[in-house]
Design a binder for these strands. Structure first.
Lengths: 395, 395
DNA sequence: ATACTTAGTTTATTAATTAAATAAACATTG
DNA sequence: CAATGTTTATTTAATTAATAAACTAAGTAT
């Protein structure tokens, strides 16, 4: 039996158009009603109605007059940045960061705390809950202005069920994090994996702004991917989509932490760069900053290691291009910021993909920087703003 | 700027619901109005309205009474098989087949003709046009009952533009096949690649019937893939999605016809099986039937070649599983019908994918058999039945 | 000063779903 | 077996939200 059956209804119509208008303002503010109507193929009257409602709810505001185009001056609309707030949580492998962000994804205040390997969920929960309370208090946000809590976490997450399926660093398995936080704070909670949060940040504030569909890749200790289609996340049948680091690019080669052999992660991640360098006799301690420094200094072993890893990621990217014919691939992570790695990856992607397909794809570095994941976590909440079933919206 | 902006409107509402009702009848006929309403979350009144229109247009018909469930007996609806017809064309590497199919994708009559390598488009066009005329004549179809022409062709096709981008066997490049046929017959023409047609057949009449989303793989001389999401084809930014045969699974290994190295096609296609067998000293002439026979007879060289090729396809399939977390993968083609190959592929897919993801995927052989592509070509037309912009439908 | 443009709102209309009432046809039960 | 309740389907009226068209507002161009 089919699952995704959403019949046409007035609610749906309204939801679609309200969402489109909101998105148009998010993307192109300041923008006039007339422009929105043209952009979305809606009649001016419909735009007036919808914007009136958004204005009444304080979600948007009239900001200024635009320049006349030979007639009455347009009234420019924009998001009302501080009408509502979102609590963003990023649970990384070594620390947790909590922030209050506003409707324009600006960070109002932010606190963080260290985490350690194999920390129990109980302990971590206490830390997280405390940070959330602190952040709420320090921003003096009225509690009824908080739309919800968005959580990004490394590892495997089931968005629909709100469960942390597996968090390698902490050893957590099947933790019902959403329910815990919803019970604690009594507001809606959304949980997703880090790379998906990053993709959402790029979707609305980064390279993906002008695109409906793109692929986002995050290279770190491991490698993950997110797929955006029609500005929405695709999550796969069991919310497991995006284990891009575990595609096989070599047969029966190195064993991976996942138990299999020849996974891309072994050849293209930070782990891989370190291994390549070690194999060629580099003996110093190093982290990602050291690598970058050495690369800039022209250390041959490091340069070669970066080139090699970049080559392999390019191979993986080429596979995505050949399979999926995407228009945009966004790559993020510390390694990607190193030119040698990025250039090698581009060259390899070009070399290993079909020419006709490579011609149509743009490969870009993530634009949203250090805060992308925490901002993206918040966008999980914002994206649900017009999703409620009964036509009743959260706010 | 966003591209796929379809605002909510009455037209859209109607189109969605009419499409859903039609699809429900296609999939679950004979089915009553009440069941449709329950299935689709529509009110009985809406279903009455929509079915009344479909009845008036002769697209569906009332077939029989169902058993009472304690009240009035339901009236069962089904597709009116012979209300309209579709001309289906499959242009394979060595032959072209043309058929008339009815609304239930039954083949009413079918003719075929050989083609040869490097045949000019002019010659081929003449053959195809003649076959279409013959098929129309021999079925005594009133011309105004023909919905359109659906064409499936091997190689690279641009569905939107209706262009054959590249047909390796014939050496065709950028042929405007749709325009040629539309000018000739003055009815709508739709063109797509063979694997996508196959996917459509599986979508409505094969393993994909109960699924919204799946991946379809066709193994032949080469290897292609199609992606179905929400029962619709995904085609990629330049209609080039699905070059699954050209993902790299070995680094710097065998050169492929595409110019690159280490493509999956080199290790998992019919070509690969033949090469593996040759490498191990098998010298007879052989085609796919011979291979199957030898496999059944336990010829070790052939068996090993099949196992090896199956292993590699499984590796590619595992990559798809890891990347996309699909719920269903359908594999078709002559090789797949050979048990040794298929079993090896399943085992390899299991071995090379993440356990959590493999658990959620079903890997099935294509169910629609020899006629799948020609039927699928017709479904390209049927799927556009309610697509017209003005709310005016083709019929 | 007049005519024309563009922006945005208001009013009336329209399309299509939805709710509610009704009818048809059957099953169940005391 | 008559009365009652169910299920199926249609009809009617209500409702929703988009749309068309008229209109107001506020500008530019000549």
């Amino acid at each position: 039996m089919r699952k995704n059956v959403i019949p046409g209804s007035f609610q749906l119509m309204k939801k679609i158009n309200t969402g489109l208008v909101f998105d148009a303002i998010r993307l192109y503010a300041p923008i006039s009603r007339a422009e929105i109507a043209k952009l979305l193929n809606l009649t001016p009257a419909t735009v007036t109605n919808i914007t009136a409602e958004l204005l009444k709810r304080n979600i948007i505001m009239e900001s200024d007059f635009g320049k006349s185009n030979g007639g009455r001056r347009p009234v420019l609309l924009k998001i009302n940045p501080n009408s509502y707030y979102i609590i963003s949580v990023y649970i990384g492998p070594t620390k947790v960061r909590v922030a209050t962000i506003n409707m324009e994804s600006e960070i109002m205040c932010s606190k963080q705390e260290s985490l350690y390997s194999n920390i129990s969920f109980e302990k971590a929960k206490e830390i997280i809950v405390t940070l959330i309370r602190e952040v709420i208090d320090s921003c003096i946000v009225e509690k009824n202005k908080i739309l919800g809590i968005g959580v990004a976490i490394h590892g495997i997450v089931n968005f629909e069920k709100g469960i942390v399926v597996f968090s390698p660093n902490f050893g957590w398995k099947n933790i019902g994090l959403r329910d815990v936080l919803e019970k604690e704070f009594d507001i809606p909670v959304f949980i997703d994996r880090d790379v998906r949060a990053m993709a959402m940040a790029e979707n609305w504030y980064g390279e993906g702004r002008e695109f409906d569909d793109f692929i986002c890749i995050k290279v770190g200790y491991g490698i993950g991917a997110a797929f955006i289609k029609d500005k929405q996340q695709i999550r796969g049948v069991s919310d497991g989509l995006g284990e891009f680091g575990h595609i096989k690019i070599k047969v029966d080669d190195l064993k991976c932490i996942c138990g299999n052999y020849g996974c891309l992660e072994n050849y293209a991640s930070e782990r891989a760069v370190i291994r390549f360098a070690r194999e060629n006799g580099y003996e110093d301690e190093f982290d990602i900053e050291k690598i970058n420094l050495e690369a800039l200094n022209g250390n041959k072993v490091i340069v070669e290691a970066l080139k090699k890893a970049g080559y392999y990621l390019g191979l993986g990217v080429a596979n995505l291009i050949n399979i999926f014919n995407p228009g945009l691939i966004i790559v993020g992570g510390d390694l990607v910021d190193i030119n040698i790695y990025f250039e090698s990856l581009i060259e390899s992607a070009r070399e290993n993909s079909l020419e006709d397909l490579f011609e149509h794809v743009k490969i870009k570095r993530a634009k949203t920087g250090k805060d992308s994941i925490i901002k993206g976590a918040g966008l999980l909440v914002l994206d649900s703003l017009f999703d409620s079933i009964e036509g009743e919206v959260i706010v």
